[in-house]
Structure formats: C-alpha cells, structure tokens
Amino acid sequence: MNLFRLVADLMHLVSIFILLLKMQKTRSVAGRCSRISFKTQALYATVFLTRYTDLFANFQSLYNTTMKVFFIASSLYIVFLMKFKFKATNDPRLDTFKAQYVVGGAAALALIVNYAFTVQEVLWTFSIYLEAVAILPQLFMLTKTGEAEVITTHYLFALGTYRGLYLVNWIYRYWTEYYVDWIVWIAGAVQTGLYCDFFYIYFTKVLKGAKFELP
C-alpha cells in the first residue's frame, strides 16, 4: 500500500458517500429528476460482484476485505434505492445510453484477452473492462441534459480523482516493486481518459462558482 492508492481508495469512498448524500437530498424534492444514471450504478454493482468472487478465498488484509464488502454492499444498496425507493425521481428517458453494448463488449474482450482462462479470472477481467466504461451512461446523460447539479459534479470529480491517482500508484509500484499488470493499466488509462472533458469543465467552471454547463 502506498499513499497514492490509499488516497485513491478514500476518494472512491467519498464518491459513494456524496452519491448517498445526493440521494437523501433528492428524496426531499421527490418528482424531480435525480440526474444520476441508474445504468452506471447498475454497471458498478456488476463490476464489484464479478471482481470480488475471491472475497472468501483470497485474504489480503482486513483493509482489503472490508473495502470489498463495502463496495459490494453500497453499490447494491444504491441500485436498490434507485430501483425501488426513489423510482419516481429516476427518469429513464434521459438514461438512454445503450449499456448492453458495453456489457457485451467487455464480456467478449474478457473471453479473448485475459491472464488465464478460468471462470474466476475471466470474471475478474470482465469487471476490469466493464469498470473502464461504466461511467459512460452517466457522462452521456450529462451531455444530453447539458448541465449538472454541483453535487453531481463533485461525485464525478471524486470518481475521476480516484482513477487518476491509481495511474500514479501504478507508476510508483512499477519503480518500487516492479509491479506490472497490463490489463489493469490499459483499462485504467482508458477509464481515466474518459474524465478529461469533464475535468476541464469542472476546473474552469464549477470551481469558480459557475454552473456546470456544456458549451
């Protein structure tokens, strides 16, 4: 564990808490579109469920296990809230990204490009590829509405920072322990790249107090 990875994981936690906070806030203005993509959240739940199949078999540390349990539990809880509790505030007409294509694409690629052709390893690889593109429905929704609430932009910023710090962590680990993981690196680079446009607008507008609006 290094500082980059620790802060990255903490930013990931922060992003989930921001999302839960936003959903609590949304409840008080029921009927209004929450502007959170259900598809993205469902994809994240799928990512965690397929990645942590080693939850009971592969013990790394208490930290590792606790985080895995938290990510699985919180992602399922968020999906549950959006699907049942706050169903009225979720507008599927804005959530139109074709998620089945990225699921299919990630599954096909995981079957072809993996480290070992075993059920667990292919599921893990699938989760890596799927996580790389899981934010697309959310970003697509943002493009469609052309604007976002401040709290939604903070959520995306926390997620993007978490990904960016993982890139730094890999460079650090390569030099300090000769750690190499091409599948994770390339998928991670693609994932971080997806946030570039968002980061630009976040820094030039939201942090200066302006509304998040697409040009």
């Binding site: 990875r5 994981d9 990931h12 080693d54 592969n58 790394q60 540390s61 590792n64 985080m67 895995k68 990510f71 480290y115 070992a116 667990q120 390893e121 893990w124 993982y166 994770v184």
Partner: peptide
C-alpha cells in the same frame, strides 16, 4: 501459478 492469488488492488 494462480494469477488471482497476488491481486491486492481493489
């Protein structure tokens, strides 16, 4: 060697 055994990142 099981490639999964050494995976320590989340």
């Amino acid at each position: 060697q099981d490639p999964h055994a050494k995976k320590d990142e989340l």
